[in-house]
Amino acid sequence: MTNFGYTLMTEQSGPRELVRYAQKAEDVGYDFEVSSDHAFPWLESMGHAPYAWTVLGAVAQVTSTVELMTYVTCPTIRYHPAVVAQKAATLQILSEGRFTLGLGAGENLNEHIVGERWPAVGERQDMLEEAIHIIRALESGDVVTWEGTHFRVDQAKLWDVPDGGVPIGVAVSGAKGIERFAPLGDHMITTDPVPELVQGWNEHHQGAPSRKIGQIPICWDPDEDAAVARAHDLFRWFAGGWHVNADLPTPASFDSASQFVRPEDVAESIACGPDLDRLAESVRPFLDAGFTDIAIVQVGDEGQDRFLDEAAGPLLEKLRAL
């Protein structure tokens, strides 16, 4: 059975709104909620970037059943992996075991703020691998000292360690990443509905069966033209793809890179409008590829309450019917 989730999109909503949306999404019946972890929005028109970990701490207190996840946190530049380990352990305790730590190699957009250079992708993956080892070691509750290629840890210890630790999902985008991270992670995270990614993860993953967690944007609105216009205004960066999106440093860069993306281009890649059957059908590539979990992004803060009040429940029924 496929699980369906709701995305807390920190780039487009303020912290109080996100907590309210999280509570509503649980009431509607979504199985899990994922939160982005950004220092900048993709485009200035999105207008927000609250601290995801504070938001998730509040969400853990206003919800009781829905699973929570970072989608995703980069534990290598803006955050030291020892700090991520402490945050994840604390959130797991606050949520009473409902949290999964989603990790990835990061985007320049968010990591440049600390003034460090932006490494090439191979080095970023080296850093991510080392960070995962550090986080795993600390979640044992032992004192950890680490002298690695990229990180040092001096007699660190987590004093509040959740029973069972924290499951780790790792964001991957190709065969090399899967071969490297499937043995290290508990679950796979990717935004590309490619069957080969699922198959490759299954081949290389060790231990208990893992989840394959995807994400897809939609833009529900009673007026299809309004939905397309909103998706174009806020999500035209989506057309760039991972290899472009990872390296651009500022919202102005994304605005420049997406200046020739037309509303009709966005409408071809993001299901827009009031037709719930069409919106639900847009997730089918993930189902066909073998994903176990699919998180929905409703584009835009404007109309988010109305989406959750009027459309999210009926949409969830149609998703489950697929």
Rank of each mutant, 00 (worst) to 15 (best):
F4K: 06
F4S: 03
F4W: 10
G5W: 00
T7K: 11
M9N: 04
S13W: 05
S13M: 15
P15W: 08
P15T: 08
R16W: 07
V19G: 02
V19S: 04
R20V: 10
K24H: 03
D27Y: 09
S35N: 04
S36F: 11
A39S: 07
F40T: 01
P41V: 05
L43H: 05
E44K: 15
G47V: 07
G47Q: 05
G47K: 08
Y51V: 06
W53T: 02
T54Q: 14
V55N: 01
G57T: 03
A60T: 03
Q61N: 07
Q61W: 06
V66R: 01
M69R: 06
M69F: 07
T73V: 09
P75M: 13
P75S: 11
R78P: 00
Y79T: 06
V83E: 03
V83I: 14
V84T: 05
A85L: 03
A85R: 00
Q86Y: 09
A88E: 01
A88F: 08
T90K: 11
E96Y: 07
L101G: 05
L101E: 01
G102T: 03
L103S: 05
G106M: 10
E107H: 14
E107S: 09
E107G: 10
H112I: 12
H112K: 12
I113E: 05
V114F: 11
E116T: 11
W118L: 12
G122N: 09
D126Y: 12
M127L: 12
M127F: 06
A131F: 10
D142W: 13
V143P: 01
T145I: 15
W146E: 04
W146P: 02
R152F: 03
V153C: 12
D154Q: 15
A156N: 03
V161Q: 02
D163F: 14
G164E: 03
G165C: 10
V170I: 14
A171C: 09
A171W: 03
V172I: 09
G174K: 08
G177K: 04
I178Y: 00
I178G: 00
E179V: 14
F181H: 04
P183K: 14
L184R: 07
L184E: 02
I189R: 02
P193Q: 05
V194Y: 05
V194I: 13
P195L: 12
P195R: 11
Q199K: 15
E203C: 13
H204F: 14
H205M: 11
Q206V: 13
A208I: 10
P209M: 13
P209D: 07
R211I: 06
K212Q: 05
W220K: 07
D223G: 10
V228H: 07
R230M: 11
H232D: 01
F235P: 00
F238A: 06
A239P: 00
A239Q: 08
V244K: 10
N245L: 15
T250M: 12
P251R: 10
V261C: 08
D265V: 12
C272D: 00
L276H: 03
R278S: 06
F286P: 00
A289C: 07
G290F: 07
D293E: 09
I294F: 10
A295C: 13
A295I: 05
G300S: 08
L308M: 08
D309R: 14
D309N: 15
D309L: 14
E310I: 13
A311R: 02
A312P: 00
L315V: 06
L316Y: 05
L316P: 00
L316T: 02
K318E: 01
R320C: 08
R320A: 04
